[in-house]
Structures are given as structure tokens and as C-alpha cells.
């Protein structure tokens, strides 16, 4: 399988997301075709600034996807996912905005005729991962954390408040899942960089809830969520739960080595829980 991949700006530098995604895709024969010369998606801030600029930042990738001959665009970041989908929706509904965006892109030497479908890497792996045949991780209980942008407000992927797709995924690939109530609570998002102290509490309540419900590991689907939840625990003693990417757990399920999956990059070490007998 070949997919057109949009990494977004936090993918490469995050704690093992890149390593694990690439390793898992290699193992599953998924060819990741990175969009050449990609730019920032505009993140959540751009729509508040200028609608045309916001859609153009996103639509530039849509045009590039078209040049590459793909129908879909895949990203592993919730903010990219939400932003690109929002732009796609606006362009689809607003004829005038679509034409203006086309003009701007035309001046950049790019043509946009159709809007690709924006998909999350989670969807791709949902389809590609084989069912687990091993009991190795059956006793490892995972708390799935979705973050606030994956299903809200656009609920196409799953229910808005209480999604379950990640739990289904984890159970299918051989992990034990702990239900909890923090799955779509906000982690502080990009505010965690600027308002660090204020946002610590937001991350802590998520970690506390997942720990209270008995999980040993947290798994995330977004670089910013992972970073916020992981770093919040560096100044805090209790509880300490490793915060993994879902791709890292997928890699473990496929029998890949922890080092190959960048698990050594986590701030709260996962060694103990993963290497238990």
C-alpha cells in the first residue's frame, strides 16, 4: 500500500513518533510518500487571523497531493488533521473562497481541482494491522488518550465526547484496555508552551484520571498530546505513566524492538512496564 503522508512540523522531532511510524509501515509494507516541500498547516491559530491565508496554507498540500497523483492525504497529528479537514470543509462549501484559493495557488505555479480526503494515520493502521495472535501484552493495561481535536467538533471518525476507536484498535492488536473519562479532555495544546504553569494542571488531571482507572501506560495519537502529558510528569512524582504513541504499541505488537520504535526517547521511561516478565 502506498500512502501520501503529511508529517507536519512536530512529527520528526517528537519522541519516537517518526521512528515507530516508519518501522511499523516498513513491516506492514506501507510506502510513506512524504509530500515534497510541505509547509506548516497553519495550526489552529491561522483561521482566527485570515481565512484565505488559512485555507491557502492547507490547500497548497491539496494541490501537491494532486500533483503526486494521490486521492487521500494522511497525517499523524491531530492538529494537522483538524486544520486540514476544516480547510477542506470550508473550500467544499464556499465556492468563492475556493476560487480565490485557486488563484493564489495558481500564482505559485500550483493547480487545485479537487480536494483530497484527509485521513488520520490511525485509520490507516486500523485497516492494515493484523489481529493479535500473541498474549504477550494481554496484561499490559493501556489508557487511550485522544485529545480534543481528533473527534471534535467534526465527528466523522468517531463519537465526539466518548470515542472508542482507539480502544478497539488496542484490544485488537493484543493490549488490555482501561476505560476512563479523560479521553477527550484538553491537555493544554500549544498553550502549554507559553502558559506552562497554567497548563500543567490540565495535563495532570488527565494523567491522574487514567492512573485512577488502573492503566499502566498512556497511548496518544498526536505529538502535542504526547509531549504535554510526558513532560508534565517530569516535575511531578506521582503518578508516573509512560506516554507512548499508538504506533509504538503497534510496533511492539508486530514484534519490533523498543529501540527501533524510539521508546528510549520518552521522558517517563517505559522500560519497566514493557519489559515485565
Amino acid at each position: 500500500m502506498k500512502i501520501c503522508f503529511y508529517p507536519g512540523c512536530s512529527f520528526a522531532t517528537s519522541a519516537g513518533y517518526k521512528e515507530s511510524t516508519e518501522a511499523v509501515c516498513r513491516k506492514l509494507n506501507i510506502e510513506l510518500n512524504e509530500i515534497p516541500d510541505w509547509n506548516c498547516c497553519g495550526a489552529t491559530v491561522m483561521f482566527g487571523e485570515n481565512k484565505l491565508r488559512a485555507t491557502t496554507l492547507a490547500a497548497r498540500h491539496f494541490a501537491l497531493v494532486q500533483t503526486m497523483g494521490f486521492e487521500d492525504l494522511v497525517t499523524g497529528c491531530n492538529a494537522c488533521y483538524a486544520t486540514l479537514r476544516k480547510a477542506a470543509r470550508l473550500l467544499d462549501r464556499d465556492r468563492e473562497l475556493f476560487q480565490k484559493t485557486q488563484e493564489v495557488l495558481h500564482n505559485l505555479g500550483l493547480e487545485l481541482d479537487r480536494i483530497p480526503k484527509v485521513r488520520h494515520l490511525l485509520e490507516v493502521l486500523m485497516e492494515a494491522m493484523p489481529d493479535s495472535t500473541s498474549d504477550k501484552y494481554k496484561t499490559l493495561s493501556v489508557g487511550a488518550y485522544y485529545g480534543c481535536q481528533l473527534t471534535r467538533p467534526d465527528q466523522e471518525l468517531d463519537k465526539g465526547w466518548y470515542p472508542e476507536i482507539l480502544e478497539h484498535f488496542l484490544a485488537r492488536i493484543g493490549f488490555s484496555v482501561k476505560e476512563h473519562s479523560a479521553r477527550t479532555q484538553c491537555c493544554g495544546a500549544s498553550h502549554a508552551v507559553i502558559y506552562k504553569n497554567e497548563c500543567q494542571g490540565l495535563s495532570h488531571r488527565i494523567i491522574r484520571e487514567i492512573a485512577n482507572k488502573g492503566a499502566q501506560v498512556i497511548t496518544t495519537v498526536c505529538p502535542l498530546c504526547q509531549f504535554n502529558l510526558d513532560q508534565a510528569q517530569t516535575q511531578n512524582n506521582e503518578p508516573r505513566l509512560p506516554v507512548t504513541y499508538f504506533t509504538q504499541l503497534a510496533g511492539l505488537a508486530l514484534g519490533l524492538a523498543p529501540a527501533e520504535l524510539g521508546l528510549n526517547k520518552l521522558l517517563v521511561s517505559a522500560d519497566k512496564v514493557l519489559t515485565r516478565p
Binding site: 465526547w161 473519562s181 479523560a182 479532555q185 488531571r205 491522574r208 484520571e209 485512577n212
Partner: peptide
């Protein structure tokens, strides 16, 4: 807004 069993 929400009803939760989260302990704060």
C-alpha cells in the same frame, strides 16, 4: 457541559 467520574 459534562457529567464525569473524574476525580479532581
Amino acid at each position: 457541559a459534562e457529567i464525569t467520574d473524574m476525580v479532581e
